[in-house]
Design a protein around this nucleic acid. Structure first.
Lengths: 363, 363
DNA sequence: ATAGCCAGCCTAAACGTTTAGGTAAACTAC
DNA sequence: GTAGTTTACCTAAACGTTTAGGCTGGCTAT
């Protein structure tokens, strides 16, 4: 087959390479008649533009990367949905870069991913985890804007934009509800602080525990279901009775915990109540249905994507005017999205029917 | 900041552009001493290769695309895992191309995706759905190899490689089990035949129903949870009693069905048994735990990726020898992976404890 | 001492686009 | 009828790499 180039079309039609490029690109300076003739020839030759050549020549870059670790977390599916919604696929290419292997974060992969993104001159990055300081620095050096979602920028780059859940608030809400149930002995099973949402979640729970006179134990585990299960098992082995309530820091940890509780026949909520961060598809169908904090991750994704798009467009405008091409980050580029507590059976609430999906929303 | 190029390094070090390229690329023809000097300069300048320029110049392409629709199907997470395992990330870039919006397949997106893959001269494609004939033709024209997973090639391209579950076999196994329970009235809730795994699944159930003297109703729905719920609701409204057993064609359909059954307070398995295709993380924790057919999608992904890699390597070798660069597909490039039936409560089996994960495997 | 070879480096041409800058002819305004 | 503008097109130079081919000067084998 003939991998045809613009030059081939030029040869066939008799037009210059310039005219062909213009005709294909939809620019003006070509008569309608010539354009049609050129397009026809292109179709017949099976021409497809060579993106490498195109990107090399033009400054404009149109792909955006989303960096995540542990995509098995259903949180990210919604997040991606929101991002896709805000970035018209005919204009932007969204590539997702998972820096986890077997669900576990790997620093090595993060480095490789950043390198790759710079190599391909990515237009912008949405990161679902706090990147290592040297990597934000590198991206800044190459004028590639970054928006953090569900995570904060590293302290060295505090001015970088972010869209997060108001985790402290959300945890206060959780704590309030637990207190209403009368639970005094709380166990918070949580992932490492590599994922910065931990800080707000933990501080909120601490404040709530203090305020309501409850005892809070924080139990850290690696960020996957199997580790969560192991860690929780060891912890429960070391104490006489289970806590009043288990608070799972995210969806994979909840999964691991639930597997263990089922294995040990610990009844929920009779023996121990359970609440968790992260809404997920099966939450109403488990035994019992799980009370979760819904972060509206699709909304978070949508906002982050819009923010990034705006920053990139501003950057391009500045560049056209000959101004420095560094992205400009403003105070309004820090947004917080409120969360909602979805009440179901696992926290101890006795619910009759509930809404269409068997859930109530806390007032 | 200086977006430095090879030329800048050349200027700084005094070596020619050629030598710098060789030093960075790890080729020979450069003394160790010079190389170190060059690498040092590159590091100091913050040099990062421009991939567009690199790809333009060299023939070698190193990125592989996975085409899916409806990634929310947990099946695909495992599939991706398997693929990633087989393609060393330092050598290959795996990009995932979702051609669904809001979980629903869109032909428009498939066309755009194929276009994009050709534009960027992707080395190979793994497709989780039967591509449209004109698209396989287009990829063939550009000598881009394709391996189908969990789906067959279009009839026009029957010789294209594929790795699938032996769906017919698997359905016979399901049917056998349902017959053992004595169910005679089967309802198969299934996605459109755009996903070709439907054929084997349906034919197997038909054969089993015939053999065991059961009545099989096939109910088609769009491939997402919300549609499944609607479709099933309408179907149940139209009949006196629920069927003996509902067979959900995949994971999203199961989710939609379960939501409906819960809403209508149809007890499982007392009023109606449930079995489903696709293993998923929460299957043991639902109420009741779901009996599913486990297709071992990670294994399928691994095999497909290895197959694709081999085909690409063979293709490159042929090209180096001046032979035609078309990919060569062999008979052994059709593989089937057996499935396993995981027995849990929803089919009517009364299980005591089960294995560590509350499941038995059918003999 | 001569031929042959090799390591280490260079020059120059390619890869397939886009774009800056130009020209000739055809219109428009007066 | 002239000057100015617009339309439709062209030539040639980029973009940042890799690579084919060539040139040294020092080493080895005879």
């Amino acid at each position: 087959m003939a991998r045809s180039t613009i030059r081939d079309i030029s040869r066939v039609t008799g037009f210059s390479v310039f005219t062909v490029s213009r005709a294909l690109g939809g620019g003006d300076g070509v008569s309608e008649q010539s354009r049609e003739q050129i397009l026809k020839a292109a179709r017949e030759l099976g021409y497809v533009v060579n993106r490498a050549a195109q990107e090399l020549r033009r400054a404009k870059r149109d792909s955006v990367a989303v960096i995540t670790a542990s995509t098995s977390n259903s949180y990210y599916l919604d997040l991606m949905d929101g991002i896709q919604q805000a970035l018209d696929p005919s204009e932007w290419t969204v590539v997702i870069g998972d820096v986890a292997v077997d669900g576990a974060y790997e620093a090595r992969l993060e480095a490789r991913m950043i390198q790759r993104l710079i190599e391909s001159r990515t237009a912008g990055v949405i990161s679902a985890l706090t990147l290592q300081p040297e990597h934000t620095e590198l991206l800044a050096k190459w004028d590639i804007p970054v928006v953090f979602v569900d995570s904060s920028p590293p302290p060295e780059a505090a001015h970088f934009p972010s869209v997060t859940t108001n985790n402290h608030e959300a945890s206060l809400m959780v704590g309030q509800h637990l207190a209403e149930h009368g639970y005094k002995d709380w166990l918070f099973l949580v992932y490492p602080s590599k994922w910065s949402s931990r800080f707000g979640r933990e501080s909120g729970l601490r404040e709530a525990a203090l305020h309501h006179g409850a005892n809070l134990v924080v139990l850290e585990t690696a960020n996957d279901a199997a580790s969560a299960r192991e860690t929780l098992a060891r912890h429960l082995d070391g104490r006489e009775a289970p806590p009043h309530v288990l608070i799972a820091g995210n969806n994979p940890l909840l999964l691991g915990a639930m597997e263990l509780l089922r294995e040990r026949a610990i009844r929920i909520p009779a023996d121990m109540a359970v609440v968790a961060y992260d809404e997920f598809a099966w939450s109403t169908l488990t035994d019992p249905p799980i009370t979760v904090l819904n972060e509206q991750s699709a909304e978070i994704g949508r906002r982050a994507a819009m923010m990034l798009r705006e920053i990139i467009e501003r950057q391009e405008a500045a560049e056209r005017k000959g101004k420095p091409p560094s992205p400009v980050y403003l105070p309004e580029h820090h947004q917080q999205v409120p969360a909602r507590l979805m009440l179901r059976g696992s926290c101890g609430c006795a619910l009759h029917g509930g809404g269409r999906n068997g859930s109530f929303q806390a007032a």
